[in-house]
C-alpha cells in the first residue's frame, strides 16, 4: 500500500514538469500583448522596454520558463499585473473557495447519483430504471449556466430564499461554518452537482447491472444470503470504479467551474481566471492554470491509491 503510493508519487514528477511547460507555453501562444493592458497605448518605447524587463518578458522563452518554474517551485508565482498583489495569495484564497464549492457539489452529485444509479441497476428494465436514467440523462445534458440562472430566478428572485451571488458575508476571504455562509453555497453547489450526478448514476447503473449478472451473485444467493447481504457484496465490488469516477469528477470540478463561478460571482479560481483573461493578467493566468493542473494530478494520485486499497487485484497482480 505505502510502496504503491510512493511508486505512484514518482510517476507524478514527469507529469508535473510536462504540465508546467504546457501551461507556460499556452499563454505565450495566445494572442495579445500583456503590457497593452497596463500601459496606455501612447506610452514611450523606453517605458515599454522598462516594463518588459521588469516582468521578464524581454528574455528568450526557455529562460523565461526556467526562471518562472524556479520561482514557482519556491512559491513565488509573481505579482498580479491588475491588482499588484502576490499571485500565490490570490490563488490560495480563490482555491479554498473553489475547493469548498467543488467538494460540496461532488458530495451532492455522488450521493444522488449513487442512489439513482444503484436503483436503476438493481431494477433494470423497470419503470424505476427508466425514471432514474431519465434524471441522469437530463443531468448530463442540461447546460449548467442555464440551470444556474433558472435556480437564481426561482429561489432568489421569486422566492427570495437564497442569495443569488457572492461568497458569503466575509467576501472572498472570510470563511466560517454556519448558515450565513452555507446559504451562499447551496445554489452554486446544486448547479455544479448535476453533471457529476448524471455521470456517476450512469456509471453505477452499468456497474451494478454487470455485477448482478455475474455468477457469484447467484452463488451468494445459493448459500442463503439475504438480499441486503448480497447488495453489500455488490456495493463493495462497484466501489473501486465508482470512487475513481467520483475522483475524476472532483478533479474536473476543481478546474472547470468558470461558468458557474461567474454566474454566481463565487470568488473561486474560475472567477479569478475569468477576471485574469479579461484583464490580460499573465502571471495570474499562468499561476492559476498551473495550480489547477496540479490539483488534477494530485486528485488522480489519491484516487489511484484509494482504489488499490479497496480492490485487492489492483496492487497485488
Amino acid at each position: 500500500m505505502l510502496a504503491y503510493g510512493l511508486k505512484r508519487l514518482l510517476h507524478v514528477i514527469p507529469v508535473a514538469i510536462g504540465v508546467s511547460i504546457v501551461c507556460f507555453m499556452l499563454i505565450h501562444i495566445a494572442p495579445g500583448d500583456p503590457l497593452a493592458a497596463i500601459l496606455p497605448s501612447d506610452a514611450s518605447a523606453e517605458l515599454q522596454a522598462e516594463m518588459r524587463s521588469f516582468y521578464g518578458l524581454d528574455k528568450p522563452l526557455p529562460v523565461q520558463y526556467a526562471l518562472w518554474a524556479w520561482r514557482a517551485l519556491h512559491g513565488d508565482l509573481g505579482v498580479s499585473i491588475a491588482s499588484g498583489r502576490p499571485v500565490l495569495g490570490e490563488i490560495l484564497s480563490a482555491s479554498i473557495n473553489s475547493i469548498i464549492l467543488a467538494v460540496a457539489a461532488t458530495m451532492i452529485g455522488f450521493t444522488f447519483g449513487a442512489v439513482l444509479g444503484f436503483l436503476a441497476g438493481v431494477f433494470r428494465g423497470t419503470w424505476i430504471d427508466r425514471i432514474a436514467s431519465a434524471i441522469s440523462m437530463i443531468g448530463v445534458s442540461v447546460p449548467h449556466y442555464w440551470l444556474g440562472m433558472v435556480l437564481v430566478i426561482v429561489f432568489s428572485v421569486r422566492l427570495g430564499w437564497l442569495p443569488a451571488m457572492g461568497g458569503g458575508p466575509g467576501g472572498s476571504d472570510g470563511k466560517a461554518v454556519g448558515w450565513d455562509y452555507l446559504r451562499y453555497l447551496i445554489l452554486p453547489a446544486i448547479t455544479m452537482s448535476v453533471i457529476p450526478m448524471g455521470i456517476i448514476a450512469r456509471t453505477i447503473r452499468s456497474l451494478v447491472a454487470d455485477i448482478l449478472a455475474q455468477d457469484f451473485t447467484q452463488a451468494l444467493a445459493a448459500k442463503g444470503l439475504l438480499t441486503g447481504q448480497i447488495m453489500r457484496h455488490v456495493i463493495r465490488n462497484a466501489a473501486p470504479t465508482a470512487i475513481s469516477v467520483m475522483g475524476l469528477q472532483l478533479g474536473y470540478l476543481l478546474g472547470g467551474s468558470i461558468l458557474i463561478e461567474t454566474v454566481f460571482s463565487w470568488p473561486g479560481t474560475g472567477f479569478l481566471l475569468n477576471g485574469a483573461i479579461f484583464s490580460r493578467d499573465l502571471p495570474v493566468l499562468q499561476g492559476t492554470i498551473l495550480v489547477l493542473a496540479m490539483f488534477f494530478v494530485l486528485v488522480n494520485l489519491v484516487v489511484d491509491v484509494l482504489q488499490s486499497a479497496i480492490d485487492p487485484r489492483i496492487q497485488r497482480s
Binding site: 455468477d215 447467484q218 452463488a219 451468494l220 465490488n237 487485484r313
Partner: peptide
C-alpha cells in the same frame, strides 16, 4: 466455474 462463483474482492 469457481473463479466466477466466488466474490473477487472478499
Amino acid at each position: 466455474e469457481p473463479r466466477l462463483a466466488l466474490d473477487p474482492v472478499y
